[in-house]
Design a protein around this nucleic acid. Structure first.
Length: 486
DNA sequence: CGACGGGACGC
DNA sequence: CGACGGGACGC
């Protein structure tokens, strides 16, 4: 099948008008919105009379969009009726009754995973007023899927963004939303936890307060909503809630993707029974972790008042974890000791950034806290969008593990022009991309062999990706390789 | 030593 | 109201 779609997309007008209009009339009316490549007045094959249907092809989508916005509803050349101007559908698609106007307004883009919606909007507003931006997130992990949408109010603005935004966004006009398909199940059955828990030690099954206060009311929601500090990585949160047996699943709440401005992340914690949930809630609610930041927990069904322990004992020593096991708390394992060591460093983030509840963005000063980073750092800065030009990539390795993405993003961002940081799954290393060589060099100079959140970090220039140092040289034109049919 | 991800929206 | 012509092989 030959590809008969119009290139570039949305660059052709479909016009309904008086049959009297000739090509000159149309050319005079439409010429100055852009480069008109073709004017075609559809005529009756037999009579050779105009059918009142005209196609005008522009070189660019934005030209067609502007022409449509300006000319729709206008009367030209003293014609008896105003013209109707639309962006033509593809030839295959043909006439559509319910024309979805969103098709001209919404772009689908590839977005660096470390980029927030706020930063996206900031970049795309240069082309016109943005209705919304959204980043697609993994439902289970809350992580960005690396793609998103930008919607404008005007077709002209969307077309300008389509043409002029950084190539690395790979902007295309978004396919219309699929009509909703009713699905079978409400939610997927939770997976059994794998790699059975050598995790929790220190008490046996009978220590569990079965039928204790956990059973009060017997309502039995085995799920909790917990609010914890954003600096905690998911594994760390997992270890915290693994203090009770029967932990089934932890996942971020929808729209709770953590970012620089968000000091709290909310997670849904699911146990295999209400008693386990109740037990964990009793242990952890009100507990300060990292120090100075109390974990808050409530029942996922929302109707249950939070377990009262933290409320009764706020900020008292017994509400803290006793890592030496000398107190009454049962939380005391070597694993948790390791966890504590890592988490204690997070305190520095709070102190030095002014991340106190009311002072989210007051961190303009240089930072020097050896427990956060062993070297003096410039103030935090925003990410920058991917440039069209070359980027400068660093390779980082940490021992014994990686700091949280939150910390990495912040620290590397402080040298300016940071485009992206991503880490390899299951490894202690990752890549950091800058838009300028100066920032990249500065990051190496300042951070190489320094300590971040208690982790020793190597920072060096990355080798070019294997599989060809330069893929951008290859032909971008779409060849018709789609010959294979299903 | 320690090296390469990810592409469609709960309306 | 409302959806698809014409051109035709070079360095």
């Amino acid at each position: 099948m030959a590809d008969i779609s119009i290139e570039p997309p949305n660059s052709r007008l479909f016009i309904l008008c008086s049959k009297n209009l000739n090509e000159t009339d149309l050319q005079q009316a439409f010429d100055h919105y852009g480069n008109v490549e073709d004017i075609w007045i559809v005529k009756d094959k037999n009579t050779n009379e105009s059918k009142g249907v005209v196609y005008i092809k522009y070189s660019k989508s934005s030209e067609a969009a502007l022409a449509m916005e300006e000319m729709n509803g206008k009367v030209i050349a003293n014609a008896p009726k105003p013209i109707k101007v639309m962006i033509a559908h593809s030839r295959e698609q043909g006439s559509k009754k319910d024309d979805d106007p969103e098709r001209l307004l919404r772009l689908f883009i590839v977005v660096p995973k470390s980029m927030t919606e706020e930063e996206l909007r900031e970049h795309f507003k240069q082309f016109g007023e943005v209705e919304y931006v959204s980043i697609v997130k993994n439902r289970d992990t809350g992580e960005s899927k690396g793609v998103g949408y930008v919607k404008y109010y005007r077709a002209y603005h969307a077309a300008k963004a389509f043409e002029e935004c950084s190539k690395s966004f790979k902007a295309v006009f978004a396919r219309p939303r699929e009509p909703k398909v009713p699905s079978g199940g409400q939610y997927d059955p939770p997976m059994e936890r794998m790699g059975g828990g050598g995790g929790w030690i220190g008490y046996g099954d009978n220590v569990m307060p079965m039928g204790g206060r956990g059973g009060s009311g017997g309502h039995g929601d085995a799920r909790l909503i917990a609010a914890v500090h954003s600096s905690l990585r998911q594994e760390q949160v997992y270890k915290l809630f693994d203090i009770a047996p029967g932990l089934v699943d932890i996942r971020p709440q929808a729209n709770a993707q953590r970012n620089y401005y968000n000091q709290i992340q909310k997670v849904l914690v699911e146990y295999n029974c209400p008693q386990a949930a109740s037990y964990a809630a009793e242990k952890l609610h009100g507990f300060e972790y990292p120090p100075g930041h109390r974990i808050s927990i409530r029942s996922a069904s929302g109707d249950l008042p939070p377990p009262s322990r933290g409320a009764l004992l706020p900020n008292t020593p017994t509400s803290r974890m006793d890592m030496n096991g000398s107190g009454m708390t049962t939380i005391s394992t070597s694993e948790l000791a390791t966890l504590n060591a890592a988490l204690a460093k997070a305190e520095a983030i709070i102190k030095n950034r002014g991340l106190a509840p009311s002072g989210l963005k007051s961190a303009d000063d240089e930072t020097f806290d050896p427990t956060y980073c062993s070297v003096r750092l410039p103030p935090p800065q925003q990410l920058v969008p991917p440039p069209d030009g070359p980027t400068h990539r660093l390779f980082i390795v940490c021992q014994p593990g990686l700091p949280s993405m939150y910390a990495l993003r912040d620290i590397f961002g402080r040298f300016g022009n940071l485009v992206e940081v991503y880490t390899l799954h299951g490894k202690n290393c990752g890549y950091v991309t800058y838009a300028t060589q100066e920032s990249a060099e500065e990051a190496i100079k300042k951070l190489h062999l320094q300590e971040v959140c208690g982790m020793r970090m190597k920072v060096m220039v990355a080798e070019p990706p294997r599989g060809g140092p330069d893929r951008s040289d290859r032909k971008r034109l779409r060849m018709d390789h789609d010959s294979a049919e299903a």
